Amino acid sequence: VSFKITLTSDPRLPYKVLSVPESTPFTAVLKFAAEEFKVPAATSAIITNDGIGINPAQTAGNVFLKHGSELRII
C-alpha cells in the first residue's frame, strides 16, 4: 500500500510517498515517516486530512482500508 504523508508543521507542506507491504505494522510507518521528515517519532502522530487520529497498533493495510492514502504527520 502507498501513503502520501504531509508534514503539517512546515508552512511549505512537504510530503513523502511511502510504499509498504500491507502487513507492515503502522508503528513502523510512523517511525519511518518521522525519520524522513527529521522530526522525533516519539512525539509524532499520524492523522487523517479530517484531523482524526490513527491508532498505530494496526497494520498498514488496515489503515489504508479505513482512512485511504492521504495522511498527515503532526
Rank of each mutant, 00 (worst) to 15 (best):
P11C: 08
F37S: 02
A60S: 09
N49Q: 09
K38H: 11
A45E: 14
S69F: 14
T43I: 04
S44V: 02
E36N: 04
I47S: 15
T6L: 04
T43V: 05
E35S: 08
D10R: 04
P21I: 11
A33C: 13
S23V: 11
N49L: 04
R72Y: 04
V63T: 05
L65C: 11
I73V: 07
G61N: 10
A60W: 00
R72M: 05
Q58M: 08
S23P: 13
F64N: 05
L71H: 02
F26M: 15
E70F: 06
D10L: 03
S19F: 05
A33R: 00
P11W: 14
D50N: 08
V20D: 02
K4M: 05
E70N: 10
I54V: 06
G51R: 03
H67M: 04
S69H: 15
N55K: 12
R72H: 05
I54K: 00
T48K: 05
H67A: 07
K4S: 08
A34I: 10
I46N: 01
V39H: 06
V20F: 15
P56T: 14
N49C: 04
T8L: 03
L71Q: 02
V63L: 02
E35C: 08
V63S: 00
P56Y: 15
V17W: 14
L71M: 05
I5T: 00
R72V: 06
F32Y: 06
V1F: 05
L71K: 01
V20L: 13
D50K: 07
S9G: 15
A34P: 01
I47E: 15
T48F: 00
A45H: 13
V39P: 01
L65S: 13
K66P: 01
T48C: 08
T27I: 12
V20A: 05
G68F: 00
S44D: 00
H67W: 05
V20T: 08
D10F: 04
I47A: 15
S19L: 09
A57H: 11
A41Q: 11
T43R: 07
T6W: 04
V17G: 05
L7N: 13
P14Y: 05
D50M: 06
E70K: 10
A33H: 02
I52R: 12
K16H: 13
F37E: 01
L30A: 15
I46D: 02
L71N: 01
I5L: 14
P21N: 13
I46W: 02
